[in-house]
Simulated scan of single mutants.
Amino acid sequence: MNKAKPTILVVNDDGITAPGIKVLLEAMSEIGRVVVVAPDSPQSGMGHAITIGKPLRLDKVDLYEGVEMYRCSGTPVDCVKLAVNKIFKGQKPDLCVSGINHGLNNSINVLYSGTMSAAVEGAIEGIPSIGFSLDDYTLQADFSHCVKYVKELALQVLANGLPQATLLNVNFPNTPHIKGIKVCRQAAAKWAEEFDERIDPHKRPYYWLTGVFQLNDGGEDTDVWALEHNYVSVVPVQFDMTAHHAIPYLNNWKFNV
């Protein structure tokens, strides 16, 4: 594999035809050799789901001239796994970028996000990885103000690397008047879900998930604060979910077995 230019795996969760991935692959094509592997349909909210018990399809497509692209029938994480195992055949890319997602993945949303889970899978594979998201859910979203930051962050990661088992969660405010980049922590927040109950023509109930984002964090060092003040938020994320601070606490328990 030609190493004169870095090889960059581009993935997403909005599907291979989403406008956000087109912007991302175009930006990455200015930096290195791009390989795109993306779901054949939207996979938002899939988290770190993988396909078990049914076959996966991986088909080469020609959507954009000069870009190696594959359409996958599975989840965003499936896309990364198949890319590493079947396309790169173990010779891993220099960078994995996911997005640009239509909608924010800040704060607690990182747990539900297919975009971020694809980037997490890249990091699990030992590939420096970044997830990108924009605060605009529409298909008409304007990503133009994100491009220079996408390229700069990708170049920084390629030049400097990332700490072991760490990736970046990058979110963009929906404004062309960005003040700069803030390295942040994840804000403490949750979704207060509600389920709108309706009745189908067969008189059976069904439910639409709705909810309100509840911020329980007034800190000025969070991703929510940065985005509200028109900064690009950059949160270092780890996939080791061990609560290391709780281990001494649990070691004080007296087990009776």
Rank of each mutant, 00 (worst) to 15 (best):
S41V: 12
L111P: 06
Q140H: 14
F132K: 04
F195L: 10
D13K: 04
I178W: 09
N109C: 14
W253N: 00
H202D: 09
D223G: 02
E26R: 09
R33C: 01
L58D: 03
M28H: 05
V237P: 00
S117K: 08
V36M: 01
E26G: 06
V84F: 06
P248H: 02
A18C: 11
V232C: 02
G114T: 13
Q156V: 14
A159F: 13
G211N: 02
K254H: 09
L139G: 12
V212I: 07
D136A: 07
V97H: 07
G180D: 09
H244C: 03
D196E: 13
R71E: 04
A123K: 01
Y112P: 06
S233M: 01
V67C: 03
F255K: 07
I247D: 08
G122R: 01
Q186Y: 04
P76C: 06
I130K: 00
T222R: 03
D196L: 15
Q91I: 14
Y112W: 15
V234S: 03
H177D: 15
M1I: 12
E152Q: 14
S129N: 08
T17R: 04
V37Y: 00
T175F: 12
C184A: 08
N251L: 01
Y64F: 12
Y70V: 05
P248F: 07
W225C: 05
A154D: 11
G131M: 02
D240A: 04
P76N: 06
Q214Y: 02
K254G: 07
K179V: 11
N109G: 03
T75P: 00
D217L: 01
E193A: 13
N106T: 14
S117E: 05
W208T: 13
P93F: 07
T115G: 12
T7Q: 03
E125R: 08
G47L: 05
I87G: 03
A123M: 13
S113A: 15
V170I: 13
D59R: 11
E68G: 03
K81E: 05
E26D: 13
Y149P: 10
P39W: 01
G161M: 11
M69R: 08
T51G: 04
M46C: 09
W225V: 00
V36D: 01
L153M: 13
G66Y: 07
A118L: 14
P205R: 06
E121L: 10
V61A: 02
T51C: 05
V237I: 12
L215N: 08
S233D: 02
D223T: 07
V97L: 11
D59G: 03
L58F: 05
I50F: 08
G20E: 04
V147P: 01
F172T: 05
R198G: 06
E30Q: 04
T138A: 15
T17F: 05
K179W: 10
V11G: 01
V61L: 07
C146I: 12
A27R: 02
G126L: 11
N169I: 08
H229E: 11
W225G: 04
N216K: 09
H48Y: 11
H145P: 10
K89Y: 09
L167H: 05
F88D: 06
L95E: 01
F239G: 00
H245R: 09
S107N: 13
I124N: 10
